[in-house]
Design a protein around this nucleic acid. Structure first.
Length: 483
RNA sequence: GCCCCCGUGGUCUAUCGGUUAGGACACCACCCUUUCAAGGUGGUAGGACGGGUUCGACUCCCGUCGGGGGUACCA
């Protein structure tokens, strides 16, 4: 049987890292097995669902490269893929439940329910809907309707026995039916609740495996009861552990960025994000680095563990660095161009060849694209920041002669290439009878504003004679002004 | 409160009754070195606790504690 999995977010916000990992695991299972990955939008929460969120989620999925085979924008054999467009289907099945005695109309108002809940709490008892409307006489139901009461439809949960979830990740988990109450299937406005709609959709879309967050494990017995009442074939369930913040509380805005697109903005690479997310809750021996292809090849549900994991920014940073080094320089250049352009730094001088050389120099020093752009500042003809500690240490009178000599000689280096530039530095050092470092460090500060940079010869060469002359002159003026 | 899940270094994890408990991030030291990175070598640090079962438990069972989730006309 061909595997069909789905990712079913509710469009009430952006795609967050937890959702992204759920999507990833489903996607990997589909791609690993040659199955189908369905994207379904669960928009039954009318108050919170927005079109903007749908777009935000699709953007996040696209950035990560999690392509879907059926879904909102592309349709598919089980369309539509928005729950609010599937109301007829839900109506059809709930009528069956009603007719077959598995569901009933309930006229209890929200106020009445709240009162009951409060009372139960006062008595220290667990509240669960008692089924007050289970056996309403038709005349009474009719009268309530005439009074203008809009009923909800509740599921008639068995009062005894137990329901067992056979979970791919947790094994058998059983629940006492008596502890489950007569939950709502269809709200008063005719919109289905999550627990009901998800069953109908997964069944009618012929989903074979439901991989979703741990937070749904407790909902699963209710869903199983609906499958059984309707005689619908059940998918296999797998509940993957939650992602927590540093304080072990459920990941939320408090913990910093949770939106995957916020990571895109911050300069993280989708390759690294995918790699990190996959490793969070899934392992394959001791391997840490995975390309998407390797993930697809090696992913199995059996490899997913069952313990909640803390999202570790430091490890993501490291992995992003790994991918910065791993990706071809030209790929990085293409992704960086828009960021440099946004700062208005690109000119005709900055050919692909030059940019490649630049990235070659910086990619192993930056952990994110944003860091690389920041780091690249001094290579462009823009004002740079001179770090006070660096200035204080190296732009001092004792180094004046060195910097003047460099200013006079360096721009005249001919031809302008690495060997010639290096020669100027080394010759000056031996002339003065000092170590190369004594010449290089002041020059580094003068050219970059900092004591840390890529190799001095490479840096100066790439900057070009004009900028080098300008910066050295500027540094000398800075020194003069300081005295 | 009740129900469910989970519990290996600070963090992510390997182990599927017998290992000097392995790897990665982070941290520290050293090496490399014109600085910074990257890279290399080494180091600090772990089976929540208490009972069982067993010749032998991180591993199986029970309890406690801790964390998470559910208990909505949210999903």
């Amino acid at each position: 049987m061909k595997i069909r999995v789905r990712f079913a977010p509710s469009p009430t916000g952006y795609l967050h890292v937890g959702g992204a990992r759920t999507a990833l695991f489903n996607w990997l299972l589909a791609r690993h097995s040659g199955g189908t990955f369905v994207l379904r939008i669960e928009d039954t929460d009318l108050a919170r669902s927005t079109e903007a969120s749908v777009q935000a989620i699709l953007d996040g999925m696209r950035w990560l490269g999690l392509s879907w085979d059926e879904g909102p924008d592309i349709g598919g054999p089980y369309a539509p893929y928005f729950q609010m467009q599937r109301l007829d289907t839900y109506k059809h099945y709930v009528d069956r439940l009603l007719n077959e005695g598995h569901a009933y109309h309930c006229f209890c108002s929200k106020e009445e329910l709240d009162a009951m809940r409060e009372e139960a709490q006062k008595k220290g008892e667990a509240f669960s809907y008692t089924g007050r409307c289970r056996n309403l006489l038709p005349e009474i139901a009719q009268r309530l309707r005439e009074e203008g009461r809009q009923p909800v439809i509740r599921f008639k949960t068995p009062t005894e026995g137990e329901t067992v979830v056979e979970d791919l990740i947790h094994g058998s988990v059983s629940f006492q039916n008596a502890l489950l109450d007569d939950f709502v299937l269809v709200k008063a406005d005719g919109v289905p609740t999550y627990n009901y709609a998800v069953v109908i959709d997964d069944a009618t879309m012929e989903i074979t495996h439901v991989l979703r967050g741990d937070d749904h494990l407790s909902n699963t017995p209710k869903q199983i009861l609906i499958y059984q009442a309707l005689g619908l074939p059940m998918p296999q369930f797998g509940h993957i552990p939650m992602i927590l913040g540093q304080d072990r509380a459920r990941l939320s805005k408090r913990h910093g960025a949770t939106s995957v697109m916020a990571y895109e903005e911050a300069g993280y690479l989708p390759e690294a994000m995918l790699n990190y997310l996959a490793k969070l809750g899934w392992a394959c021996g001791d391997q840490e680095e995975f390309t998407v292809e390797e993930l697809i090849e090696k992913f199995t549900v059996a490899g997913v563990n069952n313990t909640a994991a803390v999202f570790d920014q430091a490890k993501l940073d490291w992995l992003n660095g790994v991918w910065m080094r791993r990706l071809p320089t030209s790929t990085l250049v293409e992704r960086l161009k828009p960021r440099w352009a946004a700062r208005g730094w690109l000119t005709e001088r900055h050919t692909d060849e030059w940019l490649n050389a630049l990235v070659e120099l910086l990619k192993e020093r930056a952990r994110t694209l944003v860091e690389l752009v920041d780091y690249s500042t001094f290579f462009f003809d823009v004002p740079i920041e001179y770090k006070p500690e660096a200035v204080e240490k190296f732009l001092v009178p004792e180094n004046r002669a060195i910097l003047e000599a460099l200013r006079d000689r360096l721009p005249k280096a001919e031809p302008w290439d690495l060997a010639t530039v290096e020669g100027v530095f080394r010759n000056l050092a031996s002339e003065l009878g000092v170590k190369a470092g004594a010449v290089i460090q002041p020059a580094r500060v003068a050219l970059t504003g900092s004591t840390a940079s890529p190799g001095m010869f490479e840096t100066a060469t790439l900057m070009g004679p004009e900028l080098v002359a300008k910066r050295l002159q500027g540094a000398l003026e800075l020194m003069a002004a300081k005295v």
